[in-house]
Design a protein around this nucleic acid. Sequence first.
DNA 1: CCTGTGCGTGAATCCATCG
DNA 2: CCGATGGATTCACGCACAG
Lengths: 373, 373
Amino acid sequence: MATKTAPVAQALPLNQIMSGDCIDVMNSLPAGSVDLIFADPPYNLQLKGELHRPDNSLVDAVNDHWDQFSSFAAYDHFTRQWLAAAKRLLKPNGAIWVIGSYHNIFRLGAVLQDQGFWLLNDVVWRKSNPMPNFKGKRLTNAHETLIWASRDEASKYTFNYEALKALNDGIQMRSDWVLPICTGHERLKDENGDKAHPTQKPESLLHRIMVATTNPGDVVLDPFFGTGTTGAVAKMLGRDFIGIEREEAYRKAAQTRIDRVRRFDASALEITGSKRAEPRVPFGQVVERGMLRPGEELFSLGNRHKAKVRADGTLIGNDVKGSIHQVGAALEGAPSCNGWTYWHFKRDGKMVPIDILRQQIRAEMEADTRPTH
Amino acid sequence: MATKTAPVAQALPLNQIMSGDCIDVMNSLPAGSVDLIFADPPYNLQLKGELHRPDNSLVDAVNDHWDQFSSFAAYDHFTRQWLAAAKRLLKPNGAIWVIGSYHNIFRLGAVLQDQGFWLLNDVVWRKSNPMPNFKGKRLTNAHETLIWASRDEASKYTFNYEALKALNDGIQMRSDWVLPICTGHERLKDENGDKAHPTQKPESLLHRIMVATTNPGDVVLDPFFGTGTTGAVAKMLGRDFIGIEREEAYRKAAQTRIDRVRRFDASALEITGSKRAEPRVPFGQVVERGMLRPGEELFSLGNRHKAKVRADGTLIGNDVKGSIHQVGAALEGAPSCNGWTYWHFKRDGKMVPIDILRQQIRAEMEADTRPTH
DNA sequence: CCTGTGCGTGAATCCATCG
DNA sequence: CCGATGGATTCACGCACAG
């Protein structure tokens, strides 16, 4: 006899390409289950007629049927629908990247804001080899715009600051990224040798996005999967992906492509970590362990200020009592102070920052927690 | 006897700074009388608390009353009002530039499209010297976005293609412009020596805009005149300006400034295009572009040392992690090391220095990027 | 005169955790 | 949810001043 089955928590279709309309598919997946969404939606290009190069060759424009919208209102409606579905899928600390050109990016950005996403940066992908403007009537359209936004204002989004700084030779990464467009062997071809997808994104772009805003094992969803750049890079970098794509031909091309990708080994996926992630060491431990003795004097650089260590791990200096940070801040008249780097002690006549004592303690902690197989 | 005077075509207040709310003032001017509008509206920054640099100094934030809006809806309403007034003022072939950041530019762009302006390009002003992100929580906000739009789709807008090409060393001008922010002697100071306006735009930016999209004798209106960069550059370049500014202090500063400007004295604008040395290429780009893969091994000459590439462009070799230079130096016990010439990879059984990969990237960059000022 | 050093500062949605 | 506390965090320039 027929039984009603209770709704089961649906398992995530990891590392699969789902077929169908992205709004329907997203709405069928469990809420709050995705770490990052990368979306390259239709651009609403509004191209009139055909475009020819100066030599009369035809420019292969984006005029596929999926890129046709009758009006801004229709485009906005579509945008609100899929962004609402996307937001539902995100974990509380999840984030989204969208990419577009001036034809659609302003509408995307406004809807993101309207729906409570919290914009973190707009990023300019500066193309190192863009198509020139053949008619000389406008500037060379040499960039596309990405928007990075967290699910909401309170989200503790992932940002691997140190890794990105390392990628940029030790200088803080900027909001303008110079990367070449997707050409050559990376560009997928169909059986006729034509490009398989009109707007295939370069893997370098997705590489930077995923290194910046995901960790290994995160789930990355792409609702406009196309030929699967997001899936290919996710696999390389040890992230799980979920792809959604309507067109059979794109799904097939993407699957073949991803099957060929090799995942990098785990040690290569480790990235430069941040100090914030290091375990907290109370200054009191330094005193308890006898690395500094109560009554011992600490000095700021240049001997401008000094303070005395007390048995409970606080300092007293110039009538100010409190933590190493509080006393440092008070003596400097500064809003805050990192006591670990501010205070020094004398060893063999030299001034040594107390931070090296913290490093010793951390090293010991590390040794204790190491698996002893 | 009393006679009713027929309404007279109101004379344009050329080369004057009008006082008052820009919407009211624009509505009082005759329709279809302006060639170009440049608008730098409030950004609606939504700043919360104070921000300190790592050295504890306080960042002088934009918290002026004119930048406060209660909601996106309020900002949108304001935007629709002033853009409608602006559109009415434009000649049929007129055009508009607006500038903004990610806080407001998406709303500006969407309203422009909704009101029938025809977007021609979005232009990225890449700041050569932006303020860093002090807390390391986001990317350096290193650009602002401009939108260039004609009054409507049918407008035969002005675009001095050849002049811009000349400005760019004979290469078609791209949609990303590298220009420094306004500092030094160009930055207006008040009687206390503080900056007269929190967001003064560089003259180089207005210079390029006017050379690109106006002709001598054109009328350029700026509804958010501030300290009058638009007026100063218009005067230099032989264009007429109309400024609108609410704040008395800004009007006074602008008038003094413009009075001092000499027409055709373009010498102040010739920015010494610092002959950049060869462009810096972060090793991370070699990895992102897939020229070397995470996990791949690099070797020193003679195979004395080896190291593994990581996804963020750092190396790990013999427990040492860091940049190609740091790891090379550590393994050699040397104070420094040029990683580009030190490390090699295997190709066809031969050892090839990674510097050839940098040369490839430079060659690509060279092909498309000329100093853009 | 030149060179080097140190300081100031710019449209900024800029912390995480614990009690 | 709020308040207190630990403690992490910056790049490019212009300019003044020292030597």
